[in-house]
Design a protein around this nucleic acid. Structure first.
Length: 308
RNA sequence: GCCCAGAUAGCUCAGUAGGUAGAGCAGGGGACUGAAAAUCCCCGUGUCCCUGGUUCAAUUCCGGGUCUGGGCA
């Protein structure tokens, strides 16, 4: 049985979605989302989901599947994504994983074991309170006593990760290092990352931020707030959402909100590059100016054949 | 035309009681197994506007000039 899985990743605004769409048309594929914000319902404009036409044309999986009040986790995502991939393969089609959320990419690429660690909101709040009172250094020392190995991998200022590591230890499974994981042997990955000259990418990011605002981002955020989704939800902390919330609260004007969105998106793109550079088996597709999507897809298919 | 203030990193500015300078932002690099569009770490040489003078030494003090704000005519 064919078990080829395409992965189209790359920094935000590099054109992953449209490239995946054309690739899907060419190879009879279906698209699986790997973007942590596009998973949420009602967040269409800000997360730059594919157009309705694209979604009708080609089956898209894991888009708009979660309520913004819920908290998607990697473990959950991994389960859903692998199910979607297996389902597509079973129907004789080719899955195309599309998205730039690095941790989620890992969850698909690697044989990661998230175990049966239950949600324990109470314990997390306890630890958060402790961190606030005693400081992150204290928490780090505490972790060092429990799991020195994990502690050595986490910076003492990174309270969030320290808390997670403590939780993981208490549940009986420490945080493993990725080097202990194998590439998922069930699939034949064709892994691509879209890139382009940094200045050009930044121009695209800036332009897209402007476009999101003119196409109704403020209304989208206003509606989300009206529906009762609060600014502290992980979904509402997405880029584009948190900045518009600040504008609606009168913290700054729309012009500044736009600049903030642009800046935060650029920072995000940079972090995505850093993440993607860790994979030595990724095929970088460096987009040239003036190149059509069809030409890009040709290059991807050529490279995919070459890698067999 | 006159008076006042400013001119220092890509931007906003601090500073050097005279010994060639440093913050924030931007930018760059990096880490990351259950919040990941999150969280966290590291990276600062630039004609200190030009030009004379004083001085062992001037970006710093003094004179002149140029430009930019603001005020008065």
């Amino acid at each position: 049985m064919n078990n080829t899985v395409y992965i189209i990743s790359g920094p935000t605004a590099s054109g992953k979605s449209i490239i995946s769409y054309y690739l899907a048309k060419r190879i009879n594929g279906e698209i699986v989302n790997c973007d942590s914000i596009q998973l949420y319902k009602y967040m269409d404009i800000g997360s730059a989901k594919p157009s309705e036409k694209e979604m009708e044309d080609i089956p898209h999986h894991l888009y708009s599947i979660e309520d913004p009040s819920e908290n998607m986790t990697v473990a959950q995502f991994r389960k859903l994504a692998l199910e979607a991939i297996d389902d597509i393969l079973a129907r004789g089609k080719t899955p195309i994983v599309c998205g730039g959320t690095g941790l989620y990419l890992n969850a698909i690429l690697y044989d990661m074991d998230f175990g049966a660690v239950p949600d324990d909101e109470e314990r997390r709040q306890e630890l958060e309170k402790l961190a606030e009172e005693r400081g992150s250094l204290y928490m780090h020392e505490y972790l060092e006593g429990l799991d020195p190995d994990a502690a050595s991998r986490i910076h003492p200022n990174n309270t969030r990760k320290i808390i997670r590591a403590i939780e993981a230890f208490e549940y009986g499974k420490g945080i493993k290092d990725l080097s202990e994981c194998e590439l998922n042997p069930d699939y034949d990955f064709k892994f691509f990352a879209i890139t382009m000259e940094r200045d050009w990418l930044y121009e695209r990011i800036n332009r897209r931020a402007s476009r999101l605002i003119t196409s109704g981002l403020v209304d989208e955020v206003t509606n989300l707030l009206r529906m009762g989704y609060t600014p502290d939800l992980p979904s509402m902390k997405g880029i584009g959402y948190k900045e518009i919330i600040g504008f609606l609260n009168g913290e700054y004007d729309l012009y500044d909100a736009r600049e903030l969105i642009q800046k935060n998106t650029r920072h995000y793109a940079k972090r995505q590059y850093t993440w993607l550079k860790r994979y030595d088996f990724v095929n970088w597709i460096d987009i040239r100016k003036g190149e059509t999507v069809g030409e890009v897809v040709d290059r991807i298919l050529d490279a995919a054949e070459g890698s067999d």
